[in-house]
Amino acid sequence: MWVDEWSGQAACRDTQPDTLFVKGAEQNKAKQVCSSCRVRSECLAEALENRIEWGVWGGLTERERRALIRNNPGASWAEVLRAAKSADRVGV
Rank of each mutant, 00 (worst) to 15 (best):
Asn50Ile: 00
Leu44Met: 08
Lys23Leu: 11
Lys31Trp: 04
Asp18Ser: 15
Gly59Ile: 03
Gln27Ser: 14
Trp77Glu: 07
Arg82Phe: 07
Val56Lys: 01
Leu81Met: 10
Trp54Met: 04
Asn72Ala: 11
Phe21Lys: 04
Cys43Ala: 12
Ser36Arg: 15
Val80Trp: 05
Ser35Thr: 12
Arg65Met: 10
Ala78Arg: 15
Val22Gln: 03
Ser36Cys: 03
Gly59Asn: 09
Glu46Asn: 13
Leu48Ile: 02
Leu60Val: 06
Glu79Leu: 14
Cys37Pro: 07
Val56His: 01
Arg38His: 08
Gly58Gln: 01
Ile69Cys: 08
Cys34Met: 09
Gly74Asn: 15
Lys29His: 09
Leu68Lys: 11
Ala75Tyr: 07
Arg82Tyr: 09
Val33Met: 03
Ile69Tyr: 07
Thr19Asp: 14
Arg63Asp: 14
Gln32Ser: 11
Glu49His: 04
Asn50Gly: 07
Ala30Val: 04
Asn28Arg: 11
Val56Phe: 02
Glu53Leu: 09
Arg38Phe: 01
Asp18Ile: 07
Gly55Phe: 02
Arg51Trp: 02
Ala47Val: 05
Arg82Met: 14
Gly59Ala: 11
Cys43Leu: 11
Lys29Thr: 12
Trp54His: 12
Ala25Phe: 09
Glu79Trp: 10
Ala75Met: 15
Glu26Ser: 13
Asn50Pro: 05
Gly59Pro: 04
Gln32Asp: 12
Asn28Cys: 00
Glu64Met: 08
Lys29Gln: 10
Val22Met: 08
Ile52Ala: 01
Phe21Gln: 07
Glu64Gln: 15
Arg82Gln: 15
Val39Ser: 08
Ala78Asn: 06
Glu49Phe: 00
Lys23Ala: 11
Glu62Ile: 00
Glu49Gly: 05
Trp54Pro: 00
Asn71Cys: 02
Lys29Arg: 13
Ser76Lys: 13
Gly55Asp: 04
Gly55Leu: 06
Ile52Glu: 02
Gly58Pro: 03
Pro73Asn: 11
Arg82His: 14
Trp77Ser: 06
Pro73Gly: 09
Ser41Gln: 11
Gly59Ser: 10
Arg40Val: 08
Thr19Ala: 14
Leu20Asn: 04
Thr19Gly: 00
Val39Gly: 08
Val39Pro: 07
Leu20Lys: 01
Arg65Phe: 06
Arg40Trp: 03
Gly58Phe: 00
Val33Glu: 05
Lys31Asp: 05
Gly74Ser: 14
Arg38Ile: 14
Gln32Cys: 01
Gln32Tyr: 03
Arg51Cys: 04
Pro73His: 09
Val39Glu: 06
Lys23Met: 10
Gly74Val: 00
Glu42Leu: 02
Glu26Gly: 01
Phe21Tyr: 15
Asn28Phe: 04
Ser36Thr: 12
Ser76His: 10
Glu42Ala: 12
Cys34Arg: 07
Gln27Arg: 15
Thr19Leu: 09
Arg38Ser: 14
Glu53Asn: 06
Gly74Ile: 00
Ala25Asp: 15
Arg38Pro: 01
Asn72Tyr: 12
Leu81His: 05
Arg38Trp: 00
